[in-house]
């Protein structure tokens, strides 16, 4: 299985807790949990692509053992509900009048997300010889007001199901949730650990690279292992020997060039072309308005502009993003941003 896996990122995915590299204090704590067969609700905090999900999955796998498949669920908080799920939530929220009890004929007002994705799993009894089930919620901070619904869930069904919440921004999580969890900060991998890991992989794949290259990989991937491995694999397409030039070439492919193009054409004042470009990007990468603005922001910050100009641009983007929160049509909001960039380009 490992041999014919064409994607290194998966090939080198750790298979057990002891495989996880360079996170000793965390791992030993998790191993303690497994030994004592008990743990509180957990909250993992760390930046994107750092391995939170991988660690949480492997931990649950080892904790649940043979009963992993039925007692484990991973939920993405940022994936919108489909139409089917929404109608299902609506129909489930109504208690039929034929049922007996005080709830008959009434509406239960649970948020659709919790009603469809969380409740069915949490309410089900544990199957097998384990103390409780495990639910992982990814990108918990994107839940917004739905977080309130979790407060009671965590208490009522806590004995039946423990939750591991993953987040990139702790400030996006309401206090009552934080107080119910044990926090784990997952920092960026230290450089020497990162270096060892890369060397290990490059030995297995018989790649040649020196320390200078590893340093650049660390810089480009911002310490994220999955991204670093992707970068290695793409560089290896050009040959087994990897130097900084090859690395630079392949890292260029990684960046979304379209974003740069959008900003530059908009500065040139070509509105129609820019509109076409950004519509393409939106449909290709499935960004929502907010994510699109973030990407634009990243590009702006790296542009060679004066501080004054950059601040002005950031102000424009922030304003547009703020409006998109309430707006109905993100196409209008983005078009408005682009048209402002057009006039801005003229002033420069």
């Amino acid at each position: 299985m490992i041999e014919d896996n064409p994607i290194w990122r998966l090939k080198y995915l750790p298979k057990s807790l002891s495989d996880i590299y360079g996170r000793k204090p965390l791992i030993s704590q998790l191993k303690e949990f497994i030994k004592s067969k008990n743990f509180p609700h957990l909250l993992f905090i760390g930046s994107e692509g750092i391995g939170k999900t991988t660690i949480a999955r492997i931990f649950s796998k080892e904790f649940l053992g043979n009963y992993f498949n039925v007692n484990f669920k991973l939920v993405y908080a940022d994936v919108p509900l489909t139409q089917e799920e929404r109608t299902k939530a609506k129909s489930e929220a109504y208690v039929s009048t034929s049922k007996i009890g005080s709830m008959a004929g009434k509406r239960i007002t649970t948020p659709a997300f919790i009603q469809v994705k969380i409740k069915p799993f949490v309410q089900l009894k544990v199957l097998g010889d384990i103390p409780f089930k495990i639910l992982i919620v990814k990108n918990f901070e994107t839940l917004g007001s739905n977080q309130q619904g979790f407060r009671r869930l965590m208490e009522i069904y806590g004995s039946n199901c423990r939750m591991i919440l993953l987040t990139t921004k702790i400030s996006g999580i309401i206090d009552p949730i934080i107080s119910r969890c044990q926090l784990f900060l997952i920092p960026q991998l230290k450089y020497n650990k990162f270096e060892n890991l890369i060397i290990k992989i490059s030995e297995q794949e018989s790649l040649e690279l020196d320390k200078e290259v590893i340093k650049s990989i660390y810089r480009i991937s911002e310490g994220k292992i999955s991204k670093a491995i992707d970068l290695l694999q793409i560089s290896s397409l050009m040959g087994n020997k990897i130097d900084t030039n090859v690395l630079f070439e392949s890292s260029k492919k990684f960046k979304i060039e379209e974003m740069n193009k959008i900003v530059l054409t908009s500065f040139k004042g070509d509105f129609k072309k820019t509109r076409e470009l950004f519509r393409n990007v939106l449909s290709n990468y499935k960004y929502n308005a907010n994510q699109f603005y973030q990407k634009i922001l990243e590009v702006i910050i790296k542009l060679p502009l004066s501080r004054y100009e950059k601040c002005k641009l950031i102000n424009i983007i922030g304003d547009a993003d703020f409006r998109a929160l309430d707006g109905r049509d993100s196409d209008i909001q983005i078009s408005s941003l682009i048209s402002k960039f057009n006039t801005f380009g003229e002033m420069m």
């Binding site: 547009a320 409006r323 707006g327 109905r328 049509d329 209008i332 909001q333 078009s335 408005s336 048209s339 402002k340 057009n342 006039t343």
Partner: peptide, 11 residues
Amino acid sequence: STAFEYLSIAD
């Protein structure tokens, strides 16, 4: 750009 400004506020 002013037209889009108004349109975006309208939205």
